[in-house]
């Protein structure tokens, strides 16, 4: 079984695999070669690495130019420098012309940004990318899925955003577990899973699985569903889970505004579903430096937070 030291290495391995298949795959970096674990790629394919230095706007512009001439560039650096500093270049020169540029954002969330502090913790990226039309958005939950997701977005003819972490993620999936772009994945239905739906995205999925198991010991039947693709969103499957349980908790390492929680709220409201919703995530505040696991605990994304949110969603559902 192939194992990786985290999502960054998994991405890098996938890039090598892609590069072997097709000479159009190239890497655009902003002094991010080491951060993106791309040394092996650069050694093997030096002519396919375009490092423009610490200049993310230029990196995205260069990628647009490369893509317009038929190459398939992956711009890989920190999530916030792509989605915030180079936001306009992503939107106007890649997404709007529909160019085949892939963006790979590291340090997505508090868990990945951890001790670096707010400047390197990116919890707005999904909301920003969701508000720009036409970008495929994926947030795999472990290294093996990151490798699969990298291959999946490579097959999309158009702009894509892949959110990854720091390199210390938990391994949750088998190496060959498929990544089906745009599909909600039900991971567990404890005791039938009809009391509450825990819908999660990203690198804290392990916490959600643990919360569901503990809820089961309390006699609460939770469905655990992963939404690793925020666009195209699997609206039908989300609606089905919400309809079946009537009580939904979304869990994401992201501000509760703009990301998965907002996306699920839109589905519930627009489908007119009788379901309550509690959003677990960063509660619209700026966090701070800290060890990764304790940061999630301190900012409302602990296992007990997920459990409390489940009980709250169920209580409100019963009150209806």
């Amino acid at each position: 079984m192939v194992t990786f030291k985290g999502t960054r290495e998994a991405f890098s391995v996938a890039m090598l695999e892609l590069a072997e298949q097709d000479s159009r795959y190239v890497l655009v970096l902003a002094d991010s070669l080491a951060a993106m674990r791309a040394a092996r790629f650069a050694e093997r394919y030096p002519e396919r690495v375009f490092d423009v230095g610490i200049a993310e706007q230029n990196a995205v512009g260069v990628a647009a130019g490369l893509a317009s001439c038929g190459l398939i560039p992956f711009v890989a650096t920190y999530a916030g420098f792509i989605t915030m500093r180079a936001c306009e270049q992503v939107r106007t020169f890649c997404a709007y012309p529909g160019l085949n540029v892939k963006f790979v954002g590291a340090n997505g969330g508090l868990f990945a940004g951890e001790r670096e502090g707010v400047t390197h913790q990116f919890f707005e990226d999904l909301g920003i990318m969701r508000s720009i039309p036409c970008i495929t958005i994926v947030t795999p939950s472990d290294p093996a899925q990151t490798r699969q997701a990298t291959h999946a977005i490579a097959q999309v003819d158009g702009p894509c955003y892949l959110r990854i972490g720091s390199g210390r993620e938990h391994d949750l999936f088998k190496a060959d577990e498929p990544f089906e772009l745009g599909k909600l994945r039900v991971l567990a239905e404890h005791g039938g899973g009809e009391d509450v739906a825990l819908i999660a995205t990203g690198l804290l999925l392990n916490r959600v699985q643990e919360a569901a198991e503990r809820l089961a010991t309390e006699g609460i039947s939770a469905t655990v569903a992963e939404v690793h693709t925020l666009r195209p969103l699997d609206r039908e499957a989300i609606a089905a889970v919400a309809r079946r349980t009537g009580a939904v908790v979304t869990i994401e390492d992201h501000n509760i505004l703009g990301g998965l929680g907002s996306a699920v709220a839109e589905v519930i409201a627009e489908e007119g579903l009788a379901a309550t919703l509690v959003r677990v995530g960063l509660q619209d505040v700026f966090p701070e430096s800290g060890e990764a696991e304790s940061l999630l605990d301190a900012y409302g994304m602990g296992i007990t937070d997920v459990m409390a949110a489940a009980r709250r969603a169920m209580k409100r559902a019963r009150a209806h």
Binding site: N58, G61, G65, L66, S68
Partner: peptide
């Protein structure tokens, strides 16, 4: 200019 640079590098 950034985009033009990308085109030139692609060429």
């Amino acid at each position: 200019l950034s985009i033009g640079l990308g085109m030139a590098l692609a060429g």
